[in-house]
Amino acid sequence: MSDVSLESNSSLWKDAVHRLARNRAAVISVFVLALIIAACVILPTFHGIIRNPDLQDLPNKNMGPSFSYWFGTDHLGRDILSRVLSGGRISIAVGLITTLVSVTIGVCWGALSGYAGGKTDAVMMRIVDILYALPFLIVVILLGKTLEPLTSQLTKGVVGWFSPPGSLSASINKTTAWVEPITTLVPLFIAIGALSWLTVSRIVRAQVQSIAKQEFVEAARSLGLGHFRILFRHILPNTLGPIIVYTTLTIPGVMLLEATLSFLGLGVKPPYSSWGILIDEGANRMLSNPWLLFFPTLFFASTLFALNFLGDGLRDALDPKSAKD
């Protein structure tokens, strides 16, 4: 059984991609994801295709979907289509970056803890216990305060990098509008990334513990393979299923957490928006203007559905044994 994963990597990946391509749900998911990401990244960049997401038109507020406003307008008369798309850019960035950070930390921590066992395990898991119980909210408030000056420096730096020397202030404004929403999120990436890996680590640890005692691991050990190699080449691949699933479960969590934290000053700053904030604003108005909730939720949910079915497909594709099914 272990010899399967000892085969050359290239054929393993080729097989995986091949298997993935045969999974209809996964293929559809890839298309949906590509479409949403492309729309969110490209459309808001070029003015003229869609409206300016921050432009207010108070007399035309709370309008239902129509030909001129496909998704309707919000409580300040802004175009919801543009806001959903430009907010998606931020939410996708938040979801991917923070999840990547937290899952990486969590997988490494949990795997080491579970594999090492004994005292190391105890120490590592007690640290997790402490972090679990630490009042996250206080940490967030303090991080926001501490990192606030840093982010404005960062924005200036990045804008300066991208704009040619001596350029007009107008172009600086345009670049700022692109860069600022993302750079202001750096404290958020740090806060969420640093504190949301705990459950992943416990899940991975439990999986690793159960697999580490199986025959093929003993076999690998008796072959004299190094711990590192055993852990990352033989044990971890067998825990990939729960890791992938938990990763796809973390994404919606952090996207919504971003909205909560933005009310504490750590997330996106108005007038910029995100799916989480749009859903939150829509939730309060769902009885009078349901489309305020419907369209952001539609995009949010489609993305997550696609990510989940893609994750499931990926799991199947990477499972070397499923080929024989």
């Binding site: 919606p252 919504l256 859903i279 939730a283 939720t297 949910a301 997550l304 559905f305």
Partner: peptide, 11 residues
């Protein structure tokens, strides 16, 4: 399950 995950408790 995804519906339960995607639609937050405050909705």
């Amino acid at each position: 399950a995804m519906v339960g995950i995607c639609i937050p408790a405050f909705v």
